[in-house]
Design a protein around this nucleic acid. Structure first.
Lengths: 225, 225
DNA sequence: GTCTATAACGGGATAGAC
DNA sequence: GTCTATCCCGTTATAGAC
């Protein structure tokens, strides 16, 4: 049994990924990962050094390709768009489609990975928050800026806020996927949900920023317009 | 020191509330709560029985009054609205305003409590998910139904989905409040953010459900309407 | 109802042989 | 690179005196 199984690292990553996706990070012990991966009890520390480092590796493996594709798509859109900016629907699709594509490519592991990525947001260890920000900063900034440019009168700050909500909605869909469809290659449900979400978010994103003059709105029951 | 301090339970709840809000649930040990509340090390188990039960008590104390007021406001709106249903902005305000009001009433503890409530969503212990669903089911259902009734051609299912996104956005704002404004009575920032969020969500919520005929959309660049 | 003391367990991490 | 064995810590929870 002393043969060096050179795929040990992969197996640890795969098992950790599944467990993190299903149970969350805090609830998953390294012992559980070790058992699931069927590797030696010291293997994780040998290959990764600590639980936190393992978490980073698990997320990085999946999120980086997705973000690269997001940026590539965005760049493509911006190149072929006029001065009026990128169409909002296409912007949203450029953000979301790479997730779906990844899920489909991975076959069985698709739902697991997709669920994992949903946890990158709003998970409690402070280290994860920092990790998420580090990974998403560029994508978030570029997409927010593109949104602001394509809508007349929308500030970049407000576009950024709105994209946070889009992102939160995406994460919600991803993490709550398991309840609905657990069958791997069946992505129609997920696709439909994203489609409806895009339809929903799109119109809100098109709104210009309002000048700060709320609070003096009395009871405008549809009269003023 | 053996005098029965009858406020022990309150102090435990207050300390637990603060720590849960700041650090999250998994990251907060009962020892930390005990130290912060300056109570005996067995007090929590005596008064609550387990960590899970404490968590439930902490959340229940805050969410229940908020939800009662949400429902009361909704009922009031529905009573004074015609057959066309409740105005969407008012619906959103009825959902959100009780949170702001609670935060203001609590003074110093306002930001803490508000942050805590943000954690009711998307927190990892499975037990919390169940708790959140139990507490939010009625509110979520009533508000979704009201939204569906006030928009021509919006199904209840889709209204429910959309309200999930609204809810996710609210939670995002609440949990990420601490970074911005930590000064207790200053709720202008939070109020503004909610205002902008409402402006954003409102128009999306007004959209009718689309008939399921996506996928055969070629490149409708604004032609068909 | 409050206290001290401790049980009982599971967690992450390491040392050192092979 | 892999194994066994173990350390050391913090955690929840409880027992039993007061």
């Amino acid at each position: 049994m002393s043969l060096p199984r050179s795929n040990t690292k992969q197996r640890i990553l795969d098992s950790a990924e599944s467990l993190f996706a299903q149970q969350g990070l805090a609830a998953t012990s390294l012992r559980a990962v070790i058992a699931a991966a069927d590797v030696n009890s010291a293997a994780i520390h040998y290959h990764f050094g600590s639980k936190e480092a393992l978490v980073e590796a698990v997320f990085e493996r999946r999120i980086e390709p997705v973000n690269r594709e997001r940026l590539a798509r965005l760049q493509h859109l911006e190149a072929s768009a006029g001065d009026s900016g990128v169409a909002m629907v296409e912007l949203l699709e450029a953000f979301i489609h790479p997730l779906l594509k990844l899920g489909q490519e991975l076959g069985d592991r698709g739902p697991v990975v997709v669920r994992l990525l949903g946890r990158l947001r709003s998970e409690e260890p402070d280290s994860l928050i920092a990790l998420a920000q580090a990974h998403m900063r560029e994508v978030h900034g570029r997409f927010s800026r593109a949104a602001a440019q394509s809508v007349e009168g929308l500030t970049q700050e407000e576009a950024s806020e709105r994209f946070e909500y889009v992102h939160a909605a995406v994460a919600w869909i991803l993490t709550h996927l398991a309840h609905a469809s657990e069958k791997p290659p069946e992505y129609v449900e997920l696709q439909d949900r994203f489609q409806r979400m895009i339809n929903f978010m799109e119109v809100g994103l098109q709104q210009p920023s309002r000048i700060r003059m709320e609070n003096l709105r009395p009871n405008d029951n549809g009269a003023a317009r």
